[in-house]
Design a binder for these strands. Structure first.
Lengths: 225, 225, 225, 225
DNA sequence: AGCTAATCGAGACGGTACGTCCCGTCTTGAA
DNA sequence: TTCAAGACGGGACGTACCGTCTCGATTAGCT
């Protein structure tokens, strides 16, 4: 016998997860919302806050056990499980709690609107505070296809829509070519940021990147004469 | 879309990971490689194969316990741990076992070489069989920064170098503009594929995508008159 | 109402219990006893000892959680559950570990043999050390009919057999009447001790009790003239 | 047989137990009995009935959780705890609700009175319906010394008194020897029933047992010549 | 009729223990 | 020294109860 014990990462066991993952603002109980003692909003807060605090303190996803979350939140385990069916669903709500809506495009010029959107991605994705948080949380969510799809359809999709509307406007006013699938065009702008963040994520995304990307994509890589 | 999509991983608990992750081609024992019973190559194979089989059968990363891997491979747990220090290191080798070298560019035209590279990414990343495999494995590797950096420096870097050399050739022959950072240009080509694979990874990447991407990026999104 | 209060039973959640409750000397694993690491006899001992120590320290049956037993024994919970299917089965083995074989009757006279047996009961049942121990443990075992039956059939029955053999001998030599069921006669001797212990168990059973009981039962309550 | 059989109880976790275990006939509220909504007698009934019903349905004491009792009685948990401080106190009241007073001895002959008392024990303790009930309930009560003492002093003592008075009468009229402690004599009659019920409780106590016991104890086991 | 107050069913609260599973290490006999 | 098997101490999992608390809704006696 020994003392070494475990460690490691792992994850989720199931992939269920999304029963009631409708945001941190806890839904009403199943049967009759006005019967019985109401759920304590303080508990909701305490749990989410505990997760955020732990992550900021450098606790890895593997150490983020439900057991420990409940303990640090000063809450019974059952209180956590009453709100979320598992760690993954909780993480999803933690992720959502960090979401900032993408600012609506100013509408001055198509080029500037595109820069605004890409700049938002650059900053949101790597801003000091969110960075560590999201890296940990997103990892967990991504690891479960069902959750990731859920997140994608609620949050990511909405943001893409903003980008698409700008591109459509660009088409109407002749700023954007119409002979390509509009989804492909959207990926041309988003992809590079993603690439920088994903493939060499330990580097910071430099200022001015958004403009450089937008301009190059608009004008093309082949030199115009 | 948003920046969150761009973030990633972490975790690790241990961060050990790479002590001896020198591939499935089993290293020699510590003290004297010629003494005692040699490691069974059959065991190496059985383990890697078991992981691949399980993933193909839809086993999620969370259910991929070392315990189960050993059981499924008909192998003692110690036999697994003798080869890899943990699940992550094993996963890294599983990933490597799937690697195919990027074919060298034909060198006919810059545009065609670029298409070749992007087409390789499209197929490698999403080909029916590998897709599920990689998604599961990569998730785990990404979740541990040390491992991911290792993988990145070994495999990703090499591929990028091929792309960069093509771009440099393009600059020399005037096919590619020189007023932009060459790394940025590389991301313009790689990013869109990544975006498709990461942000809506459950969709298949259609044929012809590589050409469409390369051509649009080369020519630009703004219509040339 | 009545003395039946003296009866018992039930409980148990499962009532399973006895799969392998064949004494503390741990059985071999299910499949092949010679394969794999053998069970540690030290663990067997540590667990039983921990229970005994705790009980002697006045830990109540309600506080005797498997969790705590494992902790105090310096043993993993799984190690406990590998040996016993539940708390009850463990308790049964703890009980057995305390058993002392009833000394064989000297065979001098029937009356003295009877006194010897009853005296054994008086002492065993209430001896300082065992008393506290047994009270706690027996409670748990009695609370589960299946376990209690098991215990009865293995231990109690054997002791009764000794008593019965003495009575049979008494019949042969005319010391014991033959017009009554021999099992009834046995109860006439055992019952009074039981009654004292069960109905007013907080009192100590006084010395000389055995002789008084045996003599009175032999001679009868109605005065002989 | 052995002394272990004679041991008992303990446990308790709380040991509170008897604070207010004054029977199901619900006490008045603390402050002013006349103010506020009175306790519903229907709830009292529902709770006791639920326990009885469950026990008759074979629910073991371990499955008899307060939670389940309340649920099954269609009553809030607080309503149960308002009446009893814990499961044990409730059980004690359930026990009491089953009590039948021992019939006063006819007084015809000492021998017949003794048979009457023992017969009562035989039937009460093992009558098909009560048997299961009592076994379950008594187990729980016995497991807590404080409760058991309470029950003993209230109920058992009273019954013993009846037996003792008969024995005293027997002494006066020369039917019972006077050279033995009268408490011991009482145990000689009660013990055998107890022994049968406790040591092999799953068997039924046959008719005629009472007479057989009384006669044998009166006359003695040694044959009279 | 209105007020006060204790009740009701329901169910959430912080805890603790359950029994199962996995971690990474250790220990068998056999090869 | 390896192998398969499986036990080891440790710890998280998700469930069930504990006894308490808090809801809105009765249900009485008192003004």
């Amino acid at each position: 016998m020994n003392g070494t014990a475990a460690t490691e990462a792992t994850d989720a066991t199931d992939a269920t997860g999304t029963d009631r993952a409708d945001g941190a603002q806890a839904a009403a109980p199943a049967s009759d919302p006005r019967r019985g003692r109401p759920r304590s909003p303080a508990a909701d807060t305490a749990i989410i806050e505990a997760v955020l605090r732990m992550i900021e303190d450098g606790v890895s996803i593997g150490e983020l056990s439900m057991e420990r979350i409940a303990r640090e939140a000063g809450v019974g385990k059952a209180t956590v499980y009453r709100r979320w069916p598992g760690k993954s669903a909780l993480m999803l709500d933690v992720m959502r709690s960090l979401d900032t809506d993408i600012p609506p495009p100013a509408g001055v010029s198509v080029r500037d609107d595109l820069v605004g959107i890409i700049e938002f991605l650059r900053i949101r994705g790597l801003a000091k505070r969110n960075s560590a948080l999201l890296r940990t949380v997103v990892t967990h969510v991504k690891a479960q296809p069902a959750l990731w799809r859920e997140y994608h359809e609620t949050v990511v999709q909405a943001r893409r829509e903003v980008l698409l509307s700008v591109l459509r406007r660009g088409r109407e006013c002749g700023e954007v070519r119409t002979d390509r699938d509009i989804d492909l065009l959207a990926d041309l702008f988003v992809g590079p940021v993603l690439s920088r963040a994903v493939l060499h994520e330990w580097a910071d995304l430099p200022e001015g990147l958004a403009e450089e990307i937008v301009d190059t994509v608009l004008e093309g890589v082949r030199p115009r004469d």
